[in-house]
Design a protein around this nucleic acid. Structure first.
Lengths: 138, 138
DNA sequence: CCACGTTTGACAATGGTTCTCAACAGTGGT
DNA sequence: ACCACTGTTGAGAACCATTGTCAAACGTGG
């Protein structure tokens, strides 16, 4: 590795700050519930920007890999996204309006780890999402 | 409602025992991990039967509504199915071979209910699935 | 055996997501 | 400022799981 490569000291490939990525970030900053990629794409359009749908998907995936956004699936299996805090947590999502409460469950984390170890499973991941109807939509 | 309608006393529409539904049930009896609708469709073909893919989907949905099979989504958002016991439970699923352990989590159930009530959410449902690598695939 | 409502299957249609690939745009060096 | 080098983008095609359509086939109770 020489001084001419475009990687940072940790070896990650360079990520360029483009107009499109800024637009996606701006859109993400504009809501705090979960939205689909298409909805985010529409939001960007409403903000006067123009970013291709494929780019929205690419950017969201990248951000999710970097841990900067949460991606989860609604009851239909569609991916929905939002920017998130950096601690591991779960969500209580309103089925009707999408209002989201971020919840932590240390007890749950411990429980899943215990169960998995008990059965010899390694390299764990888990999903825990609660769907319901929020007070405003009742 | 007269004696001529084809509904049972509870008002549920009649469900007819057809060759196709028997074939799906037979296929479901043949494995105890989670399979996609397409895989189940293939299994039926291997068993010498022939059932349309749309019918497989319809039958699986019906069985899921009736609580006779579990449907959940893998990490790609695809629906996967298997016959299940009748109590509410969660799953520890091997990412590689699909081996599944059915686990109960009364503590988790209580926790989700408490969290939801605390925030005023009603009409709850929740998903909790653990993915990992089983001992055999390690 | 009949009449009626249910179920099925072949195929089209949907819809979310990813792929393709040529045009474009940051970057670091000169 | 200019260049060469790559990472990035966009339009649209391609994918693929899932659902809709509708006429033909089937199970049921009478």
């Amino acid at each position: 590795m020489t001084s001419t490569d475009h990687h940072d000291p940790e070896g990650r490939p360079a990520v360029r700050p483009t107009r499109q990525r800024r637009a996606v970030a701006a859109a993400l900053a504009g809501f705090d519930d979960f939205r689909s990629a298409q909805e985010i794409h529409d939001l960007i359009k409403e903000q006067g920007d123009s970013v291709g749908l494929a780019t929205v998907y690419r950017t969201l995936s990248t951000l999710a890999d970097a841990g900067e956004v949460d991606m989860l699936r609604n009851e239909d299996g569609e991916a929905i996204w939002r920017s998130c805090s950096d601690t591991h947590h779960h969500h209580l999502v309103c089925r009707t309006c999408g209002a989201t409460v971020e919840v932590e469950g240390p007890a749950v984390e411990r429980w899943t780890n215990a169960i998995a170890q008990e059965h010899g499973y390694a390299d764990l991941s888990h999903t825990l999402e609660i769907f319901g109807t929020c007070p405003a939509c009742r």
